[in-house]
Each structure stands twice: as C-alpha cells, then as structure tokens.
Amino acid sequence: MKKIPDKEILLFKSCLVSVEYPGIESSTKYVFDKLGIEYIVDDRQSCCTGLGYYYDLFDQFSTTALAARNFAIARETNHKNIATMCATCYAILKKSSNILNKNDNVRKKINEIFEDSKLEELKYKVDDVDSRNNIFHTVEILFNKAKEIEDYPKIDLSQFKVASHHACHYCKVHYKDTIGNLRDPMIIETLAKSCGVETVDWYDYKRTTCGAGFRQRFTNLDLSLSVTTDKLVSLKENNVDILIHMCPNCQMQFDRYQPKIEEMLDTKFNIVHLNISQFIALAMGADPYKVIGVQTHTVPVDPILEKIKLNQTICYERLSQI
C-alpha cells in the first residue's frame, strides 16, 4: 500500500464543502487536531475547477494550469502533501499532476504562461508533486490513523447501523491508487468500525454513483434522481441509519434531495447523511453546531443527536476528566 503522511499536509479547500457543508472542513480540522496531524489551509489556494471541468466548461489545459498554481502553493509552504475533502478535487489534481509530470509540451506551455505573467515562482518542475505519493483524500489520512481513532475516547454510537458511499471519483478514476479493492473499497467501513458502529459492508448498488452526474442533476433531474433512488431503496432495505460520505457532491445529492425523493415515492428513508470526518468528530464528542455544522444539512441530524444525548452527557463528563 502507498505511504500515507501525517504531516506537511495542505488541507485542500473544496468549493462544495465551503458553500454547502462547511462543517466537513471544521470537522476535518477538529479530528486532525485531535489526532496530531500537522496541516495548513492556505487562503490563496483556488478551487480545483472540478465541477466546471465535468460541466464540460473547463478545458484540461486551464484546469492543469490552475493545478500547477496550487501545487506551487504546496511547494512554497513546504506542505507538499495535499489532502482533499472532495473526491473530485482528488481526481482532478491527480490527473493534472500526471499531465504536468509526463507531458513535456503542456508543462512547457504552462510554464511559459507563468513566465509571461511574471509569475515565475509558480513554474512547475517534473515531479514537484507525485500523483501517488503526494495527493490524498482526507479519508486516507484518517484511515492511516484508524488505530488511534479506535483508541480515542468516544461517544457510544453502537446503536446505529451505518453504510458507506465511497465516492466514484475517489475509487474509480485513479483506481491503482485506491486503498483496498477498487470494486469494493472498505475504507469508510474500517473507520466507522473504529468508532464502534455496526456497518453494512455490502448493499445492492453499493458501487453505483450518487446520481449527481454533474450536469445531470441540473439538466436531467429525473434521470439523476432515479439513480439516487436505487441506492436509497437498497439502503432502506438494509435498515441503514447513517450513510457515510467522503465527497460533498455525493452528500449534497443524497441529503438535499432525499426529502424530494421521499415525497415522490411517498415513503420515508430515515437516513442521515454525514461525511466521515463529521461522523468521527461526532464520535469524538465535537459540538454538533460549532464543529460538525449540522445546521447546513437538509435531512435533520437531530434524531441522531437526540438518541445519543444521554450517552453524550456521560461521555462529555468522561472526556472532561481526561
């Protein structure tokens, strides 16, 4: 398996995390701090262009040029390990670094642009960033600390049954770098287990996309939601309480549209959607509103919070004693 760092990490900001589920970022920071992972966030970092790229709006060359700029920030701050909270950032950055390392022509052209723009400091040299060894998803950084998470004092969440939605752009695009079997990665399950919950390791349509399909959600909503529905129905059959995510776009598809689908099908799924960092932060006793950011969720997280309230008080006491 590839070597996963726990320091010199540039926590890569994601547009959808920022504007839809900012709690994912605060939860990630919270968990990283608890686990002693050394990271920075840099204001200057631009968005990866991923959504635009998959709306067919951004061309590969522009995307790659902006990636080179962000890589320069990682290099300049000596935080060359990039950890993304979004699966699309992960895939986009990996693709760009591969192009920058292997395509001499593109690298040259991009460097010329930097030079012409008097931005010499951004110029990219071969292997400044290695796709496999420098670009990670935050879930991998956490996976590397599964044992520490297990040992960390936590709230008892054992009453919940959880399942995973491993984001497509994490496991399917650069599949050689995917941890575990690309056809059934178990990273989220492993982390959930270290938080003491029961996991549904396989359900029908587990590997299927969330249904967002980039443009499909906007231009073809029925098609988009029929895919999401397939998954939700299967999850319901498995009596899942929480679906754990690793990508804000997938989370958005499920969390924002679940009520609409419930209305369409005249049913209730009763499934709460949390990012893996939010889930671990919850287990570690983080504040639901000040850290986990449940106030931005469409499907209320409250039922879960209520069920653990009793445990939580006990746990908070126990945590405060440490």
Partner: peptide
C-alpha cells in the same frame, strides 16, 4: 464554525485571471 472567507485575496484573483486569459479560458 471558525472558518474564514471563501473569497481569494485580491492579488491571487488577479493572478488567476491572468492565467486563465492566457490559457484561452
């Protein structure tokens, strides 16, 4: 949640504009 602004600093926005102008975007 203890998070800052989502907008990039002015200088950096200018850099990005310059770059995207030259890439043809």
């Amino acid at each position: 949640l203890g998070l800052g602004t989502i907008i990039l600093p002015e200088n950096d926005l200018n850099d990005i504009k310059k770059i995207l102008k030259k890439t043809g975007f």
